[in-house]
Lab assay of single mutants.
Amino acid sequence: EEPGTYGVALYRFQALEPNELDFEVGDKIRILATLEDGWLEGSLKGRTGIFPYRFVKLCPDTR
């Protein structure tokens, strides 16, 4: 996996908008950016989108 910051999904998130990223509990999401209003941008399984930061637990930065 690529170096960078990752978050592990604490809850299932179902995308409601085309720019959102849906995921299941336990998915490991690569964090790409921190956005305003409590949203993160991340990538998972070749898809990129935004999601609420409270749905993931950030992992320590590992290489």
Rank of each mutant, 00 (worst) to 15 (best):
E1A: 06
E1Q: 03
E1V: 13
E1Y: 10
E1M: 13
E1L: 13
E2W: 14
E2K: 06
E2D: 11
E2L: 13
E2C: 08
E2T: 13
E2M: 13
P3Y: 14
P3I: 15
P3H: 14
P3K: 15
P3E: 13
P3F: 14
G4I: 14
G4Y: 13
G4K: 10
T5C: 11
T5Q: 13
T5S: 09
T5W: 11
T5V: 08
Y6G: 03
Y6W: 06
Y6N: 02
Y6R: 03
Y6A: 02
G7T: 01
G7N: 03
G7E: 10
G7P: 01
G7M: 13
G7F: 02
G7I: 01
G7R: 02
V8H: 08
V8C: 06
V8G: 02
V8L: 10
A9N: 01
A9C: 02
A9K: 01
A9H: 00
L10D: 03
L10R: 05
L10Y: 01
L10W: 07
L10E: 04
L10G: 02
L10F: 01
L10M: 14
Y11F: 13
Y11P: 02
Y11H: 14
Y11Q: 14
Y11L: 12
R12P: 11
R12K: 09
R12W: 00
R12S: 11
R12V: 06
F13A: 01
F13C: 05
F13H: 15
Q14V: 12
Q14D: 09
Q14S: 08
Q14N: 10
A15L: 04
A15D: 05
A15C: 04
A15K: 00
A15T: 14
A15V: 04
L16E: 13
L16D: 14
L16A: 15
L16Y: 11
L16K: 12
E17I: 02
E17Q: 15
E17G: 14
E17Y: 10
P18F: 04
P18D: 13
P18V: 08
P18N: 09
P18H: 09
N19Y: 09
N19G: 12
N19C: 06
N19W: 08
N19H: 11
N19K: 10
N19L: 06
N19F: 09
N19T: 10
E20N: 10
E20L: 12
E20S: 07
E20C: 13
E20K: 12
L21R: 01
L21S: 05
L21F: 02
L21G: 00
L21Q: 07
D22I: 00
D22L: 01
D22Q: 15
D22M: 09
D22R: 10
D22F: 13
D22V: 03
D22K: 12
F23A: 05
F23Y: 03
F23E: 00
F23G: 03
F23Q: 02
E24Q: 13
E24N: 13
E24A: 05
V25T: 07
V25E: 06
V25P: 11
V25R: 10
V25K: 14
G26A: 01
G26F: 03
G26M: 00
G26L: 04
G26I: 02
G26C: 08
G26S: 03
G26N: 05
D27K: 00
D27C: 01
D27E: 09
D27R: 02
K28M: 06
K28V: 10
K28W: 06
K28C: 10
I29C: 01
I29L: 05
I29H: 04
I29T: 04
I29N: 01
I29W: 01
R30C: 08
R30W: 00
R30G: 06
R30F: 07
R30N: 09
R30H: 10
I31M: 02
I31K: 01
I31N: 01
I31Y: 00
I31G: 06
I31S: 00
L32V: 11
L32Y: 02
L32C: 04
L32S: 07
L32H: 13
L32F: 04
L32Q: 09
A33Y: 05
A33K: 13
A33V: 07
A33E: 05
T34G: 06
T34K: 13
T34V: 10
L35Q: 13
L35F: 09
L35H: 12
L35N: 05
L35R: 15
L35W: 04
E36Q: 09
E36Y: 03
D37C: 10
D37S: 09
D37H: 09
G38V: 04
G38Y: 04
G38N: 06
W39I: 05
W39G: 03
W39C: 03
W39Y: 11
W39L: 10
L40P: 04
L40S: 08
L40D: 00
L40Q: 09
E41S: 11
E41P: 04
E41V: 08
E41Y: 09
S43Q: 11
S43Y: 12
S43R: 08
S43D: 08
L44T: 07
L44G: 01
L44C: 11
L44I: 11
K45E: 14
K45V: 02
K45P: 07
G46P: 04
G46S: 06
G46D: 07
G46F: 03
G46N: 08
G46H: 02
G46A: 04
R47M: 03
R47P: 00
R47S: 04
T48Y: 03
G49C: 07
G49H: 01
G49L: 00
G49K: 02
G49S: 06
I50Q: 12
I50N: 07
I50F: 04
I50T: 09
I50D: 00
F51H: 01
F51C: 02
F51E: 01
F51K: 04
P52W: 05
P52K: 01
P52V: 01
P52N: 02
P52E: 05
P52R: 01
P52I: 02
P52S: 01
Y53N: 15
Y53F: 12
Y53I: 14
Y53G: 15
Y53M: 15
Y53H: 13
R54Q: 13
R54M: 05
F55T: 06
F55S: 08
F55P: 01
F55I: 04
F55V: 04
F55W: 08
V56I: 11
V56A: 06
V56C: 01
K57A: 08
K57S: 12
K57R: 13
K57F: 03
K57P: 02
K57Y: 07
K57L: 05
L58P: 08
L58C: 07
L58N: 00
C59A: 07
C59P: 05
C59Q: 15
P60R: 09
P60Y: 12
P60F: 11
D61S: 13
D61N: 14
D61H: 11
D61Y: 08
D61L: 10
D61I: 10
T62C: 10
T62F: 11
R63D: 15
R63Y: 12
R63N: 15
R63K: 05
R63M: 14
